Simulated scan of single mutants.
Amino acid sequence: MTTPHLLALCASLALCAAGTAHADSGKLLLTGGVSTIGGSAGGGLTPWAVTGTYATEGQVGGSAYLTRAGTQDYSLTGYGAALSLHDRVELSLARQDFDASPAIALNGIAPFGVTPGQHIKMDIVGVKVKVAGDAILDADTWMPQIAVGLEHKRVRPGSLQSVLDFLGTRTSGTDVYVSATKLLLDKSLLLNGTLRYTRANQNGLLGFGSAAPGRDRYSLQPEFSVAYLLRKDLAVGAEYRFKPNNLEALGAAAGLGGALREDDWKDLFIAWAPNKHVSLTLAYVDLGRIVPGITNQRRQTGYYLSAQVAF
Rank of each mutant, 00 (worst) to 15 (best):
T51P: 01
R88H: 12
E262Q: 14
W48T: 14
R261E: 13
R199A: 08
T169I: 02
S225W: 02
Q300S: 07
I37R: 10
L164G: 11
Y284P: 03
Y177V: 02
S219A: 14
R217E: 15
V178G: 00
V236P: 03
G44F: 11
Q96M: 14
A135M: 06
Y218E: 10
E151S: 08
A82W: 09
S306N: 15
D233L: 06
Y177T: 01
K27L: 12
A147M: 03
I37L: 15
L83N: 11
Q300T: 05
R95V: 14
L91V: 15
N245V: 10
P144W: 02
F98V: 09
G158N: 08
A283E: 05
Y284C: 01
P157D: 05
G237D: 02
F311H: 03
K130E: 02
T20P: 00
V50K: 07
D165V: 04
S172R: 11
A94E: 09
G52K: 11
G204V: 07
L7M: 07
P111C: 00
Q96F: 07
W265I: 03
L183P: 01
L220F: 12
E151Q: 14
R199C: 02
S159V: 08
G61D: 05
R154P: 00
E262I: 10
T295L: 04
K121I: 03
G257N: 05
T198D: 00
R199V: 00
P102M: 03
Y54V: 09
P244S: 09
G251N: 06
D87Q: 13
A135P: 02
S84N: 15
G288K: 11
M1S: 03
W265E: 15
D264L: 11
L247D: 06
V291W: 10
I109L: 14
G38N: 15
G209Y: 06
K276Y: 02
L184Y: 10
G70K: 15
